[in-house]
């Protein structure tokens, strides 16, 4: 294949997958069911792994295949499985009760997307891959933070944190082509896994001791 054309295809694929990540993020914002939210996160991570695989294939970078594989194993399979099991085992109520209602959250996220594009504007010349991927990454981080403050259930806060992390990893691919050095990627991967396991332990203990997973009840410490 002509290298110029193949880079072009890669750029379009990456832009497409990045936008799909954003679409899934917005679906997460208006999702009512906990188990579906976990699956949506798995789908979003799958698109991220897809981006890494595209980069690895079209740019001939072997170590990015490892990143893609780890993302797939860790974030598409293991973490959703872990959270899913926890939800089922603890018989957590399915309904997510957001603090802000869905239309308002949707509007807020629309505004945050706009903000993401404005913030990314001066840096578009620095993007090495795809169009708008940096803007999508910043939007993922912003909406992830919003999601975190808009959710009461402990597990949904963990999911929101993970989407923020997805956004950061997308930015790493968008800005640098090959992502960070492998040792750093491995470190990040390891930390995210351990973080979710630690969070799962805490969720379990909170559930035991409060008989609820509503972090809105964690209000005894003040001043």
């Amino acid at each position: 294949m002509n290298p110029a054309i193949s880079t072009d295809i890669a750029a379009q694929l990456i832009a497409l997958l990045a936008v799909l990540m954003l679409v899934v993020q917005l679906l997460l914002v208006v999702q009512r069911m906990l188990l579906t939210s976990i699956r949506l996160f798995a789908v979003q991570s799958m698109f991220l792994a897809g981006i890494a695989a595209v980069v690895a294939f079209f740019h001939g970078a072997m170590h990015v295949y490892i990143v893609a594989g780890l993302t797939f194993i860790g974030k598409v399979m293991f973490l959703p499985w872990l959270l899913d099991r926890q939800v089922r085992r603890m018989r957590i109520g399915q309904e997510i009760e957001p603090l802000v209602n869905f239309p308002t959250s949707m509007l807020t996220c629309g505004g945050l997307t706009l903000l993401g594009y404005i913030v990314a504007r001066p840096f578009t010349s620095l993007e090495r891959l795809g169009n708008n991927t940096l803007a999508v990454a910043i939007t993922l981080v912003l909406t992830g933070i919003f999601l975190m403050f808009n959710r009461r259930k402990a597990i949904t806060q963990v999911l929101a944190l993970l989407t923020v992390e997805n956004g950061v990893m997308l930015a790493a691919v968008a800005l640098t082509t090959y992502g960070m050095p492998l040792v750093v990627e491995l470190g990040i991967f390891f930390d995210v896994l351990v973080a979710v396991m630690v969070l799962a332990i805490l969720v379990y203990r909170i559930r035991e001791s409060f008989d609820s997973m509503d972090v809105g009840k964690l209000t005894q410490l003040k001043g």
Partner: peptide, 10 residues
């Protein structure tokens, strides 16, 4: 202490 730990880690 669970509340404190949760705030700390999140």
């Amino acid at each position: 202490s669970l509340e404190a730990a949760w705030k700390y880690i999140i």
